[in-house]
């Protein structure tokens, strides 16, 4: 069961580009990445696309398919009508290198800005002991494959390039939450989240959670809990008073 599918693929680089039309064979059971590979093999040998695992685990093949951010290797052709023209474009939020490949270094810059895991000073490596219930929340966030689809879709930077400076994006606010919820981390992550990583820019409209291929509840389990912690710290006089009276930290 194969058919000739219609595709429009963005081709170009940072000096300009456009959508180009192609007709490519589609076979049963294929994903969009298969089509891109066939296109490369048969009609456009210089088409640039980044990929590695073809199993939804390396996070390399992020792009936009019919305008929806997703992994090329996890988007099945069977969800489309045979008559449909399928548009494949690079992620919008990051600078273009060529065709479907973008420069995602913004994300690595933001990753480096987060102070690393800070265990108690008197605890040597190898002596870490923790209970499963205490690490469970952080473990959900460790499922991240760093595809940066959430970063790409978040309107804070997608629609406002100028916010990139102040806002680290859902993936890295989630990293801050992961450390904040880690039972052995001693660093202060709450002020960091708000002041250094721009948590206040997030308006919890949940597009990050909507596109995450790992189905991580980024907004519900990382961003909102961080906002609540910030509220504890900065906007809750009752908690503030409790902390003063009972010398809690």
């Amino acid at each position: 069961m194969s058919y000739q599918g219609k595709f429009r693929v963005w081709r170009g680089d940072d000096s300009g580009g456009a959508l180009e039309d192609f007709t490519v064979e589609v076979n049963e059971g294929e994903v969009v990445l298969d089509i891109i590979h066939r296109l490369q093999a048969t009609q456009a040998p210089d088409l640039a696309v980044r990929w590695n695992c073809k199993a939804g685990k390396c996070g390399s093949c992020s792009a936009e398919i019919n305008g929806r951010p997703g992994l090329l290797c996890m988007t099945r052709m069977s969800i489309f009508e045979e008559s449909e023209t399928i548009t494949v474009t690079p992620m919008r939020t990051f600078p273009i290198i060529r065709d479907l490949v973008t420069d995602v270094s913004y994300n690595y810059t933001k990753a480096r800005e987060i102070p690393s895991f800070a265990p108690p000073k008197d605890l040597a490596p190898g002596e870490y002991r923790m209970q499963q219930v205490d690490v469970e929340r952080s473990q959900e966030f460790r499922k991240c494959i760093e595809c940066f689809l959430c970063q790409n879709t978040c309107h804070v930077i997608r629609d406002h390039e100028e916010n990139k400076e102040a806002f680290s994006g859902p993936r890295f606010l989630m990293r801050v939450a992961e450390l904040e919820m880690h039972p052995l981390d001693t660093a202060d992550r709450v002020d960091q989240a708000q002041d250094d990583h721009g948590l206040g820019y997030c308006n919890i409209t949940k597009c990050c959670s909507e596109v995450c291929p790992e189905h991580i509840h980024i907004t519900d389990n990382a961003l909102i809990p961080m906002k609540e912690r910030v509220a504890d710290r900065k906007y809750d006089p009752i908690v503030w008073l409790g902390n003063k009276l009972f010398k809690r930290s």
């Binding site: 963005w10 170009g12 936009e64 019919n66 305008g67 548009t87 474009t89 600078p95 273009i96």
Partner: peptide, 13 residues
């Protein structure tokens, strides 16, 4: 470096 030149507000269908 610039973003990919795509004029449409969205390509969602």
């Amino acid at each position: 470096m610039a973003r990919a030149e795509i004029a449409a507000r969205t390509l969602r269908t």
